[in-house]
């Protein structure tokens, strides 16, 4: 058995299988959470019937319904691109999970340049979105796709810059290394070692910028112009139906999961919680990380159901005039602090 597990390919296949099973499952849970939370924020009950109590099976039922629907391809569409786009989006989202450390051992691959890889893999989704918008042969889709592209260019930069602060502080780009850096005691009060996540070690601005940019990357309100139901019908999703639409849908929530997991790892200490003995992290780690992810996802949902969306040009000015200078200042301050302290 152990011999089999030592085989690189077997192990890899196993890990990939786990991710492919767990991530959509978690995404379903988040979909359900969004349905319920949004309903109660609006004095509604929300889903109630599917699955008996609380309608817990609603996302499943939706998924099954979508899969039964005809998979329509518009006549003028660029067929291969149109059909391939949702897979690119889903792949890009799932690929991020390769470097997310759920516990000291539970990580698919602890790359040396983990952070860099995560951001790069995350941007692949935008190519998928652009493909979808372009190939649909629909003006709304095209505008949605182009808006998504413009958004990516504007927000990739603050996202990366916000992370640089953490990388400077941790001195490594490996995700596991960053968590370990947050386990290191910052200072001691008497005998007690004080361990703080990077958020509390002065990365507040970095965290805020990261979350704002992450929202823009995920096309979530207040940055959901690429979809913008009231203007662009459904943006790049307009022409999609059936299983392909489901893929986009799953990818959105899986994306929320991955972005929150990265944010939790970089800024909130990942699988580590101060006070938990390090030996127990192998078991408790995934739970701790999931708790942090859930908190972040709740905030994302909360924002979605409170705010209107910005306009495309306002989004650009927010990125270029505020977030990027702020992120640069953050890097400078962090670097100086690192050298001085």
């Amino acid at each position: 058995m152990t011999a089999l597990l030592d085989n690189f390919w077997v192990l890899l296949a196993l890990k990939v299988l786990i991710i492919a099973a767990v991530v959509p499952g978690v995404a379903l849970v988040f979909i359900f959470a969004e349905l319920k939370i949004s309903a109660h924020m609006q004095s509604r009950i929300g889903p109630y019937f599917a699955g008996g109590r609380w309608g817990w099976a609603q996302p499943l039922a939706d998924g099954i319904k979508f899969m039964q629907k005809e998979d329509l391809v518009p006549e003028d569409a660029d067929r291969p691109v149109f059909k391939f786009a949702p897979m690119v989006v889903l792949m890009g989202t799932l690929a991020v999970f390769v470097i997310v450390p759920f516990s000291p051992k539970l990580i698919v691959r602890d790359l040396d340049i983990g952070v860099f890889y995560a951001l790069a893999a995350g941007s692949v989704t935008t190519i998928g979105v652009l493909m979808a918008g372009w190939s649909s042969a629909n003006k709304y889709s095209l505008m949605g796709g182009l808006r998504a592209a413009a958004q990516l260019i504007a927000y990739e930069l603050p996202l990366v810059l916000a992370v640089v602060g953490v990388v400077i502080q941790a001195g490594t780009m490996s995700m596991n290394g960053i968590v370990v850096a947050q386990i290191e005691p910052v200072f001691h009060i008497g005998e007690v070692a004080i361990r703080l996540p990077f958020l509390l070690q002065g990365q507040v601005i970095g965290f805020a910028i990261f979350m704002i940019a992450a929202l823009a990357e995920l096309n979530r309100t207040p940055f959901d112009m690429p979809i913008a139901e009231s203007e662009l019908v459904m943006g790049y999703l307009t022409e999609y139906s059936g299983i392909r639409f489901t893929m986009f849908f799953l990818a959105e929530y899986a994306g929320m999961f991955s972005m929150s997991a990265i944010a939790a790892t970089l800024f909130l200490g990942g699988y580590y919680l101060p006070g938990v003995p390090e030996g127990a992290l192998d078991v408790l780690g995934p739970l701790i990380l999931m708790a942090k992810v859930t908190l972040l996802v709740f905030i994302i949902i909360w924002l979605r159901w409170t705010f209107p969306r910005l306009r495309e040009d306002q989004l650009q000015s927010l990125a270029w005039r505020w977030l990027i200078p702020l992120a640069l200042a953050n890097i400078a301050v962090t670097a100086v602090a690192k050298v001085v302290l």
Binding site: I37, A39, H40, M41, Q42, S43, R44, I45, G46, Y48, W302, L303, W305, T306, F307
Partner: peptide, 24 residues
């Protein structure tokens, strides 16, 4: 202004829904 809105939605989250669960 953003905070006020968020506080309102959070408050509503914990209030009783007003809709009726038709047809039950």
């Amino acid at each position: 202004g953003l905070m006020k809105g968020m506080w309102l939605t959070l408050r509503t989250l914990f209030k009783r829904p007003v809709t009726i669960n038709y047809p039950k």
